[in-house]
């Protein structure tokens, strides 16, 4: 089998972040892993004491094992490439994030994993022993000002 050659004339990517990769060339094995706690707070303040208590293992989303696909059995694959080229004119991407990959070329094995946990509003329940967040009614800006 003749391996295929990938040909891209122009690549334009504006931003890459969080374990993302842009790769030009063949790859044997590629693995990327990203985990994120997306905390949405009402008040624009940073509490360093609270942030020290927030750990990934406290949340099930980061600890549960992920199921792995079983390897194929009794299948032999054979491919013929004629012509042995994949041609692309232009690739234009705004953003690549959280273990996203742009790969030009062949890959033998690729394994990507991403875990995201969303948390909203610590205002009423900053108890580190119980990180289940109790929902609170929306608070208006005028009510916040009254607190001060």
């Amino acid at each position: 089998m003749i391996p295929r050659t990938s040909e891209v004339n122009h690549i334009h990517v504006r931003s890459i972040l969080f374990s993302s990769v842009v790769n030009v060339g063949d790859t044997g094995r590629l693995a990327a892993f990203s985990q994120a706690l997306a905390i949405q707070k009402y008040e624009p303040t940073f509490d360093s004491a609270l942030s020290g208590l927030i750990n990934f293992p406290n949340y099930q989303a980061f600890t549960i094992p992920r199921p792995r696909p079983a390897p194929p059995k009794e299948v032999t694959m054979q491919s013929f490439n004629d012509p042995a080229y994949i041609r692309v004119g232009t690739i234009d991407i705004l953003g690549i994030s959280a273990a996203g990959i742009l790969h030009i070329g062949g890959i033998h094995h690729i394994d990507l994993e991403s875990r995201v946990k969303h948390i909203r509003n610590y205002r009423t329940n900053p108890d580190p022993k119980n990180l289940d967040i109790v929902s609170v009614p929306p608070v208006g800006r005028s009510m916040l000002d009254q607190d001060k």
């Binding site: 391996p3 295929r4 990938s6 991407i93 273990a99 742009l102 070329g105 062949g106």
Partner: peptide, 17 residues
Amino acid sequence: SLKIVGVSISSLVLVGD
């Protein structure tokens, strides 16, 4: 041409095998 807004959370854009 390929025009993509976002490649996020464990997504793959592959030009190849």
